[in-house]
């Protein structure tokens, strides 16, 4: 198998076999089974990559709504310039407390790793929109990588089926 490095995370492209006979000659072997094992190995590798990518995708699909919801509330605070906001906020899981929110120009964003930074509402909006944009962009590129991977998996499946059939047929001819 020639490994062609592509733009898709360097995942090697599954080689399409045009003609099994000449492919076998090219590989310089008559042992279809060892080739099948090799293909099976590649197939498992593709599957592993698929699992990793699917996990990444899941994480992003979870992250994007969270970002959107933060963006919503910051937007709301940013636009609200007068009057106190009466609210119920989440104190702990399934426990809400009443709070009055005066107009504010400052919010704190949780950056992770136990760090929180204060931002003006407009800066916070910029930052969150930016994060949201890049998360959406990442998701799109992961989706395209997954589709590419899907193609390699299908190609390998078909090649394995063809090689297997070729081998069965060959053995039948040799036996008779």
């Amino acid at each position: 198998m020639t490994a062609e490095v592509s733009k898709h995370l360097g995942i090697p492209e599954a080689v399409f076999v045009t003609d099994v006979d000449s492919f076998m000659k090219e590989m310089g072997t008559t042992d279809a089974e060892s080739l099948l094992r090799k293909l099976e190995e590649n197939y498992q590798k593709y599957k592993m990559m698929e699992i990793t990518l699917l996990q990444k995708k899941k994480r992003l699909q979870h992250q994007i709504p969270e970002l959107k919801s933060t963006l919503d509330i910051v937007k709301h605070l940013h636009e609200k310039k007068t009057g106190t906001e009466k609210s119920n906020f989440l104190l702990s899981a399934a426990l809400y407390a009443k709070a009055e929110i005066p107009p504010t120009e400052e919010v704190f964003l949780w950056l992770g790793a136990n760090v929180m930074l204060s931002y003006s509402t407009s800066e916070a909006l910029d930052l969150l929109s930016q994060n949201n944009k890049s998360a959406t962009k990442n998701l799109t590129s992961i989706k395209s990588d997954l589709e590419y991977l899907r193609d390699q998996i299908t190609t390998t499946e078909v090649t394995m089926a063809r090689l297997y059939n070729w081998n069965v047929k060959k053995r039948r001819t040799t036996a008779s």
Binding site: T154, T155, A161, R162, N165
Partner: peptide, 24 residues
């Protein structure tokens, strides 16, 4: 998706692309 292709029919790259597209 399951694909089982008999060897008697020649599979071209074109076909493979169609199969891939179908799966995708």
């Amino acid at each position: 998706m399951a694909t089982k292709i008999d060897n008697d029919i020649h599979v071209t790259l074109e076909d493979q692309k169609k199969i891939n597209l179908f799966a995708r």
